[in-house]
Design a protein around this nucleic acid. Structure first.
Lengths: 217, 217
DNA sequence: ACTTTTTTGTACCATTTCGCAAAAAATTCC
DNA sequence: GGAATTTTTTGCGAAATGGTACAAAAAAGT
């Protein structure tokens, strides 16, 4: 076996052209299936979601699910990763925006609330918070991912405040790290309260009050 | 039978003397059994806790469990009520204490962290938050209880800040309601992060930073 | 001693759940 | 057209789950 001709060298990582796979073609698109799985997990949580539910939601039958994503736990982990990616693309732009700090934060919370309040059968909250509240205690891998999610948010907020301070939008003795933790705390509280059914108006009010204090009138 | 001698008139509502029940005596104490059930629910959540688990933990077999507390959902609800009562007695005194505001809040958070970090197999977090993250979406009764839990905490904090303001410990333009929501947010964030495995030191630091900002250095 | 009352303990049932094996189907390669 | 390859489909099976029926047990009343 001098030359390995097994795979044609994939220069373009995901070409829009189907790469002519060998056997029977898939009846599903992994991306959309994973999205459906994520929706279900967000709605019901890990324990209350059965493989049959997932099978029905994705349109894949159980063996296909298994072949594509592994067992239930692996599918959950992949769903969670997908959630984080989605959140990053939804947020990423705003964090790097050049708006004044108050506007920037308002936008961030608006997008967050869009995510938390979405869902056909009731608001779904923040998947990171949900996972922390359930699986994180018993599964070290999941716990690590969740912790990483928290610190990622903390850091993003901290960078936000640091930038604002450099631009003179905050007082000299403002501590970006502390403010970031408060900003995260506000994210967490609205995520939880959203899932408990609190209407958007009240959540917006909480955000506004928190911003008043953090940005120190 | 001129005088009704069926029951001796129970003037004292719960005498420490066992009231001579009629049939076979219970092999368990409902209070401690409910406590064990609460421990389990807090550890694993509703869906991941089976009746067999509960049976093993309480020492009662399933039919007895059913007879004493109703089905799984009812047992969960009773466990949650118990949690709230426990939390109230643990907190109640401090909220009404006459300490300076900073000290008072420090104590509150210390007690809260004691509750959230307790647990033989990992920190158990706040049961209200956990329940909001899971069952609250699908069960209106549970959702109502959880929402009530949130507003109860908000109100307690608000009273706290109102008192401090009256005593001149806060600036004139401080808004007790807004500060209370931030104080609740801080409770929520440490509850979640505790369950995600964040060590107490870091949680204490978050509390301290939050107090700095709320009490306006 | 016998009846009544209440709880326990054993056993059972219908359903759900996760996982997998084996056959059938759809496609490419030769 | 036939072999090779990959996926789908069907269906099985062992275990767990929530709930209940029923007899045995343990106490008080008579």
């Amino acid at each position: 076996m001098v030359q390995k001709s097994k795979k044609p060298p994939v220069t373009k990582i995901d070409a829009p052209v189907p790469p002519k796979r060998r056997g029977r073609p898939r009846a599903y698109q992994p991306d959309v299936a994973l999205g459906k799985a994520l929706d279900l997990f967000r709605k019901d949580g890990f324990a209350a979601t059965s493989l049959d539910d997932l099978s029905a939601a994705t349109g894949m039958n159980r063996p296909s699910l298994y072949g594509a994503f592994g067992d239930k736990r692996e599918l959950f982990i992949k769903s969670y990763r997908r959630y984080r990616e989605d959140a990053r693309v939804a947020m990423g732009g705003i964090f790097r925006d050049e708006l004044p700090i108050r506007r920037r934060l308002e936008r961030i919370y608006a997008v967050a609330l869009d995510i938390y309040l979405s869902g056909e059968s009731g608001p779904r909250g923040c998947f990171t918070v949900m996972t922390a509240a359930s699986e994180a205690v018993h599964d070290p891998d999941i716990r690590a991912m969740v912790l990483e999610g928290f610190t990622e948010l903390d850091k993003a907020f901290a960078a936000c405040f640091r930038l604002a301070k450099e631009k003179g939008e905050l007082s000299e003795n403002a501590d970006p790290v502390v403010l970031a933790q408060l900003a995260s705390a506000t994210i967490h509280t609205i995520a939880i309260r959203a899932r408990a059914g609190m209407p958007r108006k009240e959540l917006d009010a909480i955000v506004n009050g928190a911003l008043d204090v953090m940005l120190r009138a």
